[in-house]
Amino acid sequence: MTDKGQLDASEAHLKDLLVRGLAGEAPAYQAFLRDMSAHLRAYFRKRLARLPDEVEDLVQESLLAIHNKRHTYDAAQPLTAWVHAIAKYKLIDLLRRRAGHDLLSDPLDDEMDFLAASDSEASEAKRDVGKLLQQLPDRQRLPIVHTKLEGLSVAEAAQITGMSESAIKVGVHRGMKALAALIRGKP
């Protein structure tokens, strides 16, 4: 198969996983995020050769962003364009915070390359998302811990915590957004 053919195939495969995930199929969504973390890692590693310590943190930040913003994906749109735009935005956001575009070791406008590279060797993240999770208020932390770490259903989490089911859902939703803000270093 040609390179182009391979890229088209990965695009179609990942898009299928995401579309099924957005329809509620958790295993497809998990496979999508796992593949995506490898593509993100390769993308950031190549472009942040001078900041290798930041790579894994940025991979995690981008995964959380993809998750929190997944409602902005439109199946009529190429998946590559969507994830590349998010990855590029997060990279520029990091550089802006670090105030130095000269830290960049590779050009940014190569959307076509995004799926071409993949890197499944994770390095250690400097910032521990698990610890950040502990900083969230109980009404957000408990719903996330019960439904997302322990894998309980919304109903079970509601029973354990004494919160209503809608409060659990809202808590998860707001908690994930708060987590993304903590990761970016905002109050």
């Binding site: 958790a26 995020l33 995690q60 998750h67 902005t72 994770a122 997302k148 859902k169």
Partner: peptide, 23 residues
């Protein structure tokens, strides 16, 4: 938290979103 664990966390629970949220 390792990246694989974060992926697990993100994919566990509700992953469906309503369509046409922006519109």
């Amino acid at each position: 938290m390792k990246t694989d664990d974060l992926v697990m966390l993100l994919a566990t629970g509700e992953c469906a979103v309503p369509e046409h949220a922006a519109q």
